[in-house]
Design a protein around this nucleic acid. Structure first.
Lengths: 148, 148
DNA sequence: GTGCTTGCAAATGCTTTGCACAAAA
DNA sequence: TTTTGTGCAAAGCATTTGCAAGCAC
């Protein structure tokens, strides 16, 4: 529904924040803009760079706090691809990820393409929190990138 | 020390190391024993504790270096469940994981139970490095554990 | 004024690295 | 001897937190 990755105005962001019960401060609006306009997945540091590319100055603490807030409020979701490598994904629709180990690039795999069957039943006191699928790929061992 | 779920002797470990081209030092043997005897998934720190529970003293540096070596040699594989939360899985057979967000517990899902269809074709210069599936579950919001 | 928000800087947690010493080939 | 492995302590990186100052209602 609110998977808008293209042209988003400040008003859209304001309403997005409002819908998720987040007070729209200047910093949060900047951060939301950076996340929802710059399509794709960004790390906390990339968000920091994006937000501070223009005049605005937002501290790393606020970046992290805000990303955490957005995650808690279900506006974005974290994608963990390697230890210490977390991307934030504005696409809340069910989908999966393709990760290039060599370049660190992360791309989406639509949920409609992939079908997963046979996931186990959860204990009654537990609820499903999400299914993370990361397909990892890398260059062949003999190709330029694959050398080690 | 080791609660052996599967009975693995030092000789088995020695041959395992040898088969993977790893020189069997005392420390590596200890670490391998800890990983392959203590069933289940352990973090680097848990391996450190397990190895040093008895007399043996192996430094953290060696634990990390050795785990990395084992991963590179295809003896174990890392499972990343959260930023800064990496488990090492001695089960190299294709399978998936169920992660309990509340307790931090990680359990296996056999690959035979789960079927995944429709994964995208990779670019010709890339090879599949692995498919990581982590099913995340947590307590219901109103249950004891779910409170936040 | 009261309560939420921000941001600096310090602290944390996990992991890697530099370097000297020890062991093995 | 030459190579390889070990371990301490220091460095590194990503993230969190304590706390004081700022802003909003």
């Amino acid at each position: 529904m609110e998977t808008l990755s293209s042209n988003i105005s400040n008003r859209d962001v304001a309403s997005l924040l409002h819908r998720h019960g987040v007070q729209p401060t200047a910093q949060r609006t900047e951060i939301a803009l950076a996340i929802f306009c710059n399509a794709g997945h960004q790390s906390a540091d990339e968000v920091y760079e994006a937000v501070n590319a223009d005049a605005t100055r937002v501290s790393r603490a606020t970046i992290y706090n805000t990303l955490k807030l957005f995650v808690d409020r279900g506006m974005i979701r974290p994608v963990i691809v390697a230890p210490g490598k977390v991307f934030y994904d504005p696409n809340m629709a069910p989908h999966y990820h393709l990760y290039d180990t060599d370049t660190g690039e992360l791309t989406d795999i639509g949920a409609d393409q992939v079908k997963i069957h046979g996931l186990p039943k959860l204990p009654p006191d537990k609820q499903l929190d999400g299914v993370d699928v990361v397909v990892r790929m890398r260059s062949h061992p003999n190709s330029p990138h694959g050398a080690h």
